[in-house]
Design a protein around this nucleic acid. Structure first.
Lengths: 336, 336
DNA sequence: ATATATATGCTCACATAGAGCATAATGAGA
DNA sequence: TCTCATTATGCTCTATGTGAGCATATATAT
């Protein structure tokens, strides 16, 4: 039976002004994340003489049916790792923003992805798991407020604000610094990973900025502020961290990183590792159990000293019962 | 002063296997949204004989410095409209997913954007504001549950589930239908706009699916389920709606759509129009005021009959005070 | 036995959310 | 002028959720 179309004439994509499209390469990069030993790790491809890289490749319009399948191909080839959960993050395309050398090679767009996997799975040559806080040392507030913030970041951001051309811009920069780094009464928002990285980039405080602009920030060169990465990979990793930290709160994505059975403390440590903040133990378990995210297995774990903990498993059914199951994070701020 | 780089050797983007990249066009499309007379509207470009389109164009690597500036150029040229708030949504690239005819023309990636603007601003030729519920009639729950859901969508989704090849797939399809359309005790989640559209697409119930697959859905051809659009534009609009409905709750984006002064009821009507659900009036104002999102101007409005309402304005400072100001929506379900 | 861990149960104060009643201030007719 | 209908706004009451911390239980290591 024939189907009638309201529009018989199918619209065509117009070619851009300058003819049939100057060459554009599409980069596909993945922040592949895992948590082991209470550290969130990203899968890093390291080759001699270059900075660290995320697994990446270019989109091939002939062999890749979708962007995501292209990405999976590249990552699996480079890392010998089967990806489970994969989510598109953002497409970056700014000229001169650590993609290629100015005036060299074709224009590159970069599509960033987040992938989650359980620890200990196989790895390819040149790949290794690296603690993501090595790239973002200001993001880990579990033990204490990272000293680098007061010691280096805040004064440099002040210089950056002061160096602004006019009063309005100066104010805006101050505001951004306050909001991003929780200065002056503002509470730390662990989700703003990308905003913080972008601010540091604009202030010229991360190495990539100097690579792109060839000029030193106000106040002169800085000691390295976290390890840098090739291209825009640190930007993509920042996007991934922010997205994951936010998403954990309303979707049960953490369980992609957990083994089939785990104790509630192990779960909590994983969440803490990712979010970079400490949580209140009793309230955490109350929350997780009340939301129906987990169910006890009856079995006990005695990996840690002390009273053995019950083991739990993820209740896949939640997804079918409640529209947005996740875990709200409740930071632990003791009165003293 | 020279800056030392850890990596002197800059990594290069590898060309894809098949040589220096087969032609890929980058489409840039924007869902430009506005609210007038309690209806959310998208800016539509309509040309004779084709279905409706969003303003769009292709990315030009030579003249466009960023993806967003390319988008702004195209939209402003086509609609004579200055865009304010613009946000990238998603990059689609599935082969055969209403981008080009199979086997024809270059491969197209499509980057979708959301833009917000106040009503009544100038328009170009062939463009007009259209109620977005014309494309998604099942999304407007303000007056009542849209009858089309029970009358058409639910039975057809049942057929779609039944026609599955095996029991597991059947169950998954049923679950998706239940979650998406709030069947059987599950409450309607107004944010799942894209999920619903994708389900209808997979079930073959929206026109685009037939365009792409050239086959009728289980149960035979369907009467039109909302107006269709060219390419993947309805998919982009669905993404925009979902994103906006979600974002309203934690960022003060609604104010991009409001005039400088407004009454609280006008604000509420705008939020309701976008979210497609009715809110509890007293609680809405309590929330908005408690969050410090608005401040009274002292002036009164008597546009509506009844007691005159105070006019309010958006307090831009909130953004600087609280990390994530927004509006939680409190649906109104009276007991009787 | 004692110290030290961790697990788990429970409480209490306080904030927020959902519902609805009551009152205030208008303009439009009767 | 009085009575409605209509919108605005104030306030209450209850249920639920959240932040913090005390208390107890059950391990292992001396």
């Amino acid at each position: 039976m024939a189907v009638t179309h309201k529009s018989q004439k199918i619209a065509r994509y117009p070619a851009p002004a300058g003819g049939e499209g100057h060459a554009v390469l599409i980069g596909l990069s993945a922040a592949v994340v895992s948590v082991a030993e209470e550290r969130p790790r990203a899968l890093i491809v390291h080759r001699a003489d270059t900075a660290d890289a995320l697994p990446f490749g270019t989109f091939d319009p002939l062999s890749h049916r979708t962007l995501e399948s292209g990405l999976r191909n590249w990552v699996e080839e480079q890392t010998r790792l089967q990806l489970g959960y994969v989510e598109q993050l953002y497409t970056f395309g700014d000229r001169g923003r650590h993609l290629t050398e100015p005036g060299e090679g074709p224009r590159v767009l970069s599509v960033g992805y987040l992938a989650l996997t359980r620890p200990q799975e196989g790895r390819g040559p040149d790949t290794q798991w690296r603690d993501w806080y090595g790239y973002f040392p200001w993001e880990d507030w579990r033990e204490q407020k990272p000293p680098i913030i007061e010691a280096l970041i805040v004064p440099r951001l002040n210089l950056f604000a002061t160096s602004a051309a006019n009063a309005e811009l100066r104010e805006r920069r101050r505001d951004r610094a306050r909001l991003c780094f929780g200065i002056g009464g503002i509470t730390w928002d662990e989700e703003k990973v990308l905003e913080r990285y972008e601010l540091l980039y604009e202030a010229g405080l991360v190495e990539e900025a100097q690579r792109d602009r060839q000029s030193a920030p106000p106040g002169g060169p800085v000691p390295p502020l976290g390890a840098d990465m090739v291209f825009d990979h640190r930007r993509i990793l920042a996007t991934a961290m922010g997205r994951l930290r936010a998403k954990m709160k309303y979707r049960p994505v953490v369980f992609e990183l957990m083994p089939p059975e785990f104790t509630l403390l192990e779960l909590q440590r994983t969440v803490e590792a990712l979010s970079g903040i400490r949580l209140h133990k009793q309230n955490f378990r109350r929350l997780v159990e009340a939301q129906g995210l987990v169910e006890g297995t009856g079995r006990l774990s005695r990996k840690a000293g002390g009273r053995p903990a019950e083991q739990f498993r993820f209740r896949r059914e939640v997804v079918r019962e409640r529209p947005a199951p996740g875990m709200r994070l409740t930071p632990n701020r003791p009165s003293r």
